[in-house]
Amino acid sequence: MTTVLVAGATGSLGSLIVKNLLERGADVRALVRGPSKDKLPTHPRLTPYVGDLTDGAAALQPLVDGVEVVVSAVQGGPEIIIDGQRELLRAAERAGVHRMIPSDFSINLHGYGYGINVLSDLRRRFADEFDSSTVARTSVSIGAFPEYFLADVHEILDPVAGTFSIWGDGTRPIDITTIPDTAAYTAAIALDPKTAGREVHVVGQQLSMLELRNEVEAASGRRWKLVRKGTLRDLRAEIARRQFTASSMFEYLALQYQIAMFDGTASLRDVRNADYPDVLPTSVTAYLAGSGAAHFAVPEENWRQDEWPTAV
């Protein structure tokens, strides 16, 4: 039986990774901060550990002794994605852990260079830590979460105006995977030793922005006026303008994801869904007919621009 430690085990993604690992028969150790411990379910194969990545490698090592795979689902700035995960990696090295899945869960981070996306840069910098590590890296790429991509942060759907906005011609396929499907794939990948040292790309559905608009109209039962905001060159100019005037990176971060998706550099390559046939990903149609229907309603409050998004 495989023992897996999950850091960030009570977050929106981490909690579902824990659930899927337990369903697959793994022994799970959940690393959580003290106030979050009560959010964990009770299960005979789930052991909670209270701690923080900033506690340092020496403090984290006892938590990973005997662990075969570490899964990180933490979010934050460089102090978490680089410094905190580095301490977790060092602890894993000392404990003889075989593999680690870092907190990537995003578009194809290595399809484009530095300086395009702030958060991608952090994840790539941490990926470099594995070059001299005894722990093998397994990176999971899934494209965009519809839970975020269709939320107000991406400025695509406007329920008040009834508009659907795009940059470019909207015909290039983009990658979309729900958070629950990402968790299911991640659990399967964590228990698959063949993924050691690999980039693993899995996806829920690939469709263009124009096709996504059609899905939104069919699911909502209303027309959404198509707003063409400009070319991809215009999008790059808008990102540069916001970077110059913004009080926070959150004012342009979503557009940084979009440019890499819409120009194709962030597209997933060598998609490995067939390696995990028991994971049946949710279609966009099914998502919008379920929890995704909330995107069609006027939000009660706007997304806070001081929040770290889960991913895309």
Rank of each mutant, 00 (worst) to 15 (best):
S139F: 08
R29I: 03
N117G: 01
S283L: 11
D234Q: 02
H295C: 10
F296K: 02
R86H: 15
H154T: 12
V28D: 11
D152G: 03
T231E: 14
A293V: 01
T10Y: 11
F126A: 11
D55M: 09
G76C: 08
G221N: 09
D121P: 04
D181P: 05
L5Y: 08
V284D: 02
I179F: 06
I166H: 02
S106D: 15
F149H: 07
P48S: 13
D270H: 13
T177S: 04
L53V: 05
G290M: 01
G197Y: 10
L63Q: 15
E211F: 07
S103E: 04
D278M: 12
V118I: 10
A144C: 04
S247T: 12
G162R: 06
G111I: 11
G51Y: 02
Y114W: 13
R29M: 11
A91Y: 04
V312W: 15
I81K: 01
P35C: 04
I156H: 03
F149Y: 14
G197E: 12
S12C: 08
P48N: 12
F250I: 00
V216Q: 09
V135E: 15
E301F: 10
D83F: 08
D55R: 08
V118L: 03
R241H: 07
I189N: 07
A260Y: 09
A297Y: 09
A297W: 06
G77L: 05
E87D: 12
P48Q: 11
R241P: 04
F244W: 12
G76N: 06
G162K: 08
L13C: 03
I239Y: 00
A184V: 01
A9W: 04
T282N: 05
A187R: 02
G66Y: 07
L226N: 12
Q206T: 08
I166V: 14
R125T: 09
G34M: 07
L40V: 04
V74D: 01
L212Q: 11
G11P: 05
V271Y: 06
W303Y: 14
D38F: 07
V118K: 03
Y148I: 00
D131M: 10
G290N: 03
P299N: 04
Y49Q: 13
I166L: 02
D52P: 04
T163A: 02
E129I: 02
A91N: 06
V74T: 10
H43R: 10
K37Y: 00
I142V: 15
A286P: 05
S267N: 13
Y252E: 00
P299G: 02
T245N: 12
N302Q: 14
Q243E: 15
H201T: 01
V200H: 12
A91G: 10
G66Q: 08
R90N: 14
V227A: 12
T182V: 05
I174L: 15
N108D: 15
D27C: 10
Q305H: 11
P159V: 07
D27H: 12
E217V: 03
T195D: 08
P78N: 11
Q75H: 11
V64Q: 05
D234F: 00
Y276R: 13
N108Q: 14
M1T: 13
V4C: 07
V284K: 09
P41A: 05
V71E: 14
K19N: 10
I142E: 08
G168W: 09
A26S: 13
